Computed example of a mutant assay.
Amino acid sequence: MVSGRSHCESCHVPLSARDLIPILSYAAQKGRCRHCKSRITPDHLWIELAALTVPAMALLTRVIAGHFQDLPFRLADWDALSFVGDCILGWGLLALSVIDLTCLRLPDMLTLPLLLMGLVEGYATAGTDGVLDRALGSAAGWLIFALIAAGYRMIRHRQGLGGGDVKLLAMGGAWVGLGALPVVIGAGSALGIVLALATAMRSGRFNMTILVPFGPCLAAAIWLARLMLCRS
């Protein structure tokens, strides 16, 4: 993403702009590389389709929130800024989830800029009070997971919660604020338990050493908290 251009995974030829149009390029090339005709992994298409749902979900929750608050729906200036923030957060969480599922990593080059963007968006939409709440949420998120990770290492003598997860919760706090943090932690933990049980059932090994990516579970909880709680 930073040091090199996108390229075909088979022939390694750099892709041009017309090869990188989401969904349309895949459809036009019938799922194959334009140069070597190798099959393009369908995962790319599914990720692009998932990215389309991000603005749709953000817009839908705004319409629903406006309906229940008896407000006419209109995208005012501050609404537009917050909506853009919803999309940036959603796309960032999607990218982080895919990376964690693929290689069990949550890169700082995505997490930390998103954390800063959350604080900036909080100030832009709610002023000093907003950025203070976001900053407290970020600090509390980092502290809670850092203490849990340290306690687990002390008791079990091995790592149970990665440093990327700690930073991801801190980033989530910068977008949803301090008040929504308990919901994020609870929902993320519940999703993590479900994922661990599903992984254990598939592998046939029911023990405490099963390694599962917690990032997607936490990302889903952050996204839901942002859409649901931050609209009330």
Results as ranks from 00 to 15, higher is better:
residue 77 D to R: 14
residue 84 V to K: 02
residue 64 I to D: 12
residue 49 L to C: 09
residue 72 P to G: 07
residue 81 L to S: 05
residue 72 P to V: 04
residue 66 G to K: 13
residue 52 L to T: 01
residue 50 A to M: 11
residue 54 V to Q: 02
residue 36 C to N: 04
residue 52 L to F: 10
residue 48 E to K: 03
residue 49 L to P: 07
residue 45 L to I: 06
residue 78 W to I: 01
residue 67 H to E: 06
residue 74 R to Y: 00
residue 56 A to H: 03
residue 56 A to Y: 06
residue 74 R to E: 02
residue 36 C to M: 09
residue 73 F to Y: 13
residue 42 P to F: 12
residue 51 A to L: 06
residue 49 L to K: 14
residue 65 A to I: 15
residue 47 I to Q: 02
residue 65 A to E: 02
residue 76 A to Q: 06
residue 71 L to G: 01
residue 66 G to F: 05
residue 65 A to G: 13
residue 62 R to D: 08
residue 50 A to I: 07
residue 63 V to S: 13
residue 84 V to P: 07
residue 55 P to T: 05
residue 36 C to D: 01
residue 46 W to S: 10
residue 64 I to C: 09
residue 50 A to R: 09
residue 75 L to H: 02
residue 41 T to G: 06
residue 73 F to K: 13
residue 44 H to P: 02
residue 66 G to R: 10
residue 53 T to S: 15
residue 81 L to T: 10
residue 83 F to P: 07
residue 63 V to R: 14
residue 79 D to M: 09
residue 77 D to S: 04
residue 39 R to Q: 09
residue 41 T to D: 15
residue 65 A to H: 11
residue 53 T to C: 13
residue 73 F to T: 04
residue 71 L to E: 07
residue 39 R to K: 14
residue 57 M to S: 06
residue 54 V to I: 11
residue 41 T to Y: 05
residue 84 V to S: 11
residue 71 L to Y: 02
residue 46 W to F: 15
residue 42 P to E: 11
residue 82 S to C: 06
residue 47 I to R: 01
residue 41 T to P: 08
residue 61 T to N: 05
residue 54 V to L: 03
residue 43 D to R: 11
residue 73 F to C: 04
residue 56 A to G: 03
residue 51 A to G: 12
residue 43 D to E: 08
residue 53 T to K: 02
residue 64 I to Y: 10
residue 41 T to E: 15
residue 45 L to Q: 11
residue 39 R to H: 06
residue 73 F to P: 10
residue 84 V to Q: 07
residue 74 R to P: 00
residue 81 L to W: 04
residue 65 A to R: 12
residue 45 L to T: 07
residue 37 K to E: 01
residue 55 P to D: 10
residue 59 L to G: 08
residue 75 L to Q: 03
residue 68 F to K: 01
residue 82 S to Q: 10
residue 46 W to G: 03
residue 48 E to L: 01
residue 68 F to N: 03
residue 47 I to W: 00
residue 50 A to S: 14
residue 82 S to I: 01
residue 53 T to I: 06
residue 64 I to M: 14
residue 84 V to N: 08
residue 42 P to Y: 06
residue 45 L to C: 11
residue 83 F to N: 08
residue 51 A to T: 11
residue 83 F to Q: 12
residue 78 W to H: 08
residue 51 A to N: 12
residue 59 L to R: 13
residue 71 L to R: 09
residue 51 A to V: 08
residue 73 F to D: 04
residue 44 H to W: 01
residue 43 D to M: 14
residue 55 P to G: 08
residue 40 I to H: 13
residue 36 C to T: 05
residue 51 A to H: 11
residue 67 H to S: 13
residue 76 A to N: 07
residue 39 R to S: 02
residue 54 V to F: 07
residue 58 A to L: 08
residue 56 A to V: 12
residue 80 A to N: 04
residue 67 H to T: 13
residue 73 F to E: 03
residue 43 D to Q: 11
residue 60 L to R: 00
residue 76 A to S: 12
residue 77 D to L: 02
residue 36 C to W: 00
residue 52 L to E: 00
residue 51 A to C: 08
residue 61 T to E: 05
residue 81 L to N: 05
residue 71 L to Q: 13
residue 71 L to M: 07
residue 61 T to V: 15
residue 57 M to H: 00
residue 46 W to T: 08
residue 75 L to I: 15
residue 79 D to K: 02
residue 71 L to S: 04
residue 36 C to H: 03
residue 75 L to C: 05
residue 65 A to T: 12
residue 60 L to D: 01
residue 45 L to S: 10
residue 69 Q to P: 05
residue 74 R to W: 00
